[in-house]
């Protein structure tokens, strides 16, 4: 009997990734509809201390596998651990973040379990008639959406990009159960040798975590064109992101890229500055709460998704906006 909605909780260096918490929020909705439990799957070296956090964010149970071998992500030991959990607990649904870890682990697992897997879902719903998980994802570079079912195999597995689902507010009153799975790992489970781990964290915040994004497109004209956007971002405490064109031209680092081949973001405000808005870009940002676009081409597709569209010259508007914003915020501080 397959039951319950399981979520793989990603952690790196014993720090939880936000996507795991977001998936717990979604899992909570799905499980309530199925009248089932939400189970968080926590795998790592020393991670038990997070059980409480996971429960307060929606989990009813936490299943933990701890071993020194699980410190850094490696495909085989992680597959072995989660496979063991799937075989032991038989989930009806299992969700993973569509990260460079989730998109390596989930397909390997789905093949081992012999079940279906749907990648990069943007919407997950329960079909009220059949109780099946309806997994909706973009296809053809975001030109089309497809709803996928996995009817006869369990668990129904899906990956979801960070930033797509909303996490549940922390509920201090929630309680849950913790299960520690005893597993033994040996050197035979390690079929790759990690010679070096090189961290590339910049001081900048990950764009998926930013409340406000000021995003640059080809229209900024060159690497110099970023400076006014950076000044504006600094004034309103935002991060700078970009379209693919800006990354491909080497004007900004790859980790700033929004879109199908970059990151999916849903900030409170997304400024699209000089971005025309190819479908691949829109796929990564159209869930933003407020979209403000500035572009000199009135036919740019970005205006189709913008809440506020300004047809005009960004080289004039952005510095003016920065100036007015500084004044505005200074007045506000005076009042406070």
């Amino acid at each position: 009997m397959y039951k319950d909605v399981f979520v793989f909780i990603e952690q790196r260096d014993n720090l939880l990734s936000k996507v795991g918490i977001e998936l717990l929020g979604k899992a909570r909705e799905l499980a309530d509809e199925r009248k089932q439990y939400v189970v968080a799957v926590l795998v790592g070296e020393k991670v038990q201390n997070y059980c409480d956090t996971l429960i307060k964010h929606g989990a009813d149970k936490v299943v933990v596998v701890e071993d020194p071998i699980l410190k850094e992500y490696m495909t085989e030991p992680y597959t072995k651990a989660v496979y063991h959990i799937i075989e032991t607990y038989k989930p009806e649904i299992m969700l993973f973040g569509a990260t460079s870890i989730g998109r390596d682990l989930a397909p390997r697992l789905a093949a081992r379990v012999h079940t279906g897997l749907t990648a990069d879902c943007t919407k997950l719903e329960i079909d009220p008639e059949t109780g099946l998980l309806m997994m909706t994802r973009p296809a053809f570079g975001g030109n089309l959406m497809a709803t996928i079912l996995c009817e006869n195999h369990r668990p129904q597995m899906a990956t979801v990009r960070p930033g797509v689902m909303e996490s549940m507010a922390k509920d201090e009153k929630r309680t849950g159960e913790i299960f520690i799975e005893e597993m033994t790992f040996s050197q035979e489970d390690v079929n790759v040798e990690i010679e070096e781990v090189i961290k590339t964290e910049s001081k900048k915040k990950d764009i998926t975590e930013a409340r406000i994004l000021v995003s640059a497109g080809r229209g900024i004209g060159g690497p110099e064109g970023l400076k006014p956007l950076e000044s504006f971002a600094q004034v309103i405490d935002a991060e700078v992101s970009s379209s693919r064109a800006v990354v491909d031209s080497d004007w900004i680092a790859k980790d700033r890229q929004v879109g199908q081949t970059g990151k999916t973001v849903r900030p409170e405000v997304y400024f699209a500055i000089g971005i025309s808005g190819a479908v691949q870009h829109l796929a990564g940002m159209e869930e933003s709460d407020l979209i403000i676009a500035v572009n000199k081409d009135e036919k740019a597709p970005i205006f189709d998704v913008a809440d506020l569209g300004i047809v005009g010259d960004l080289n004039e508007i952005v510095p003016k906006l920065t100036e007015l914003m500084e004044k505005e915020l200074a007045i506000k501080e005076d009042i406070e």
Binding site: H114, T115, G116, L117, T118, M134, P138, A139, G142, N143, L144, M145, A146, T147, I148, L149, C150, E151, N152, H153, V279, E286, I291, V294, E298, F303, D304, V305, A306, D307, L308, G309, I310, V311, G312, D313, E316, I317, K320, L321, E323, L324, M325
Partner: peptide
């Protein structure tokens, strides 16, 4: 194949927002 495409459909656009093409940069800001 364990998975099956139930349906595919074009992405729905969101409601049209405001758009201005005649503002000075001051007014736009």
């Amino acid at each position: 194949s364990p998975t099956r495409v139930k349906k595919s459909f074009p992405k729905s656009g969101k409601g049209v927002g405001e758009k201005y093409d005649d503002l000075t940069s001051d007014e736009a800001a």
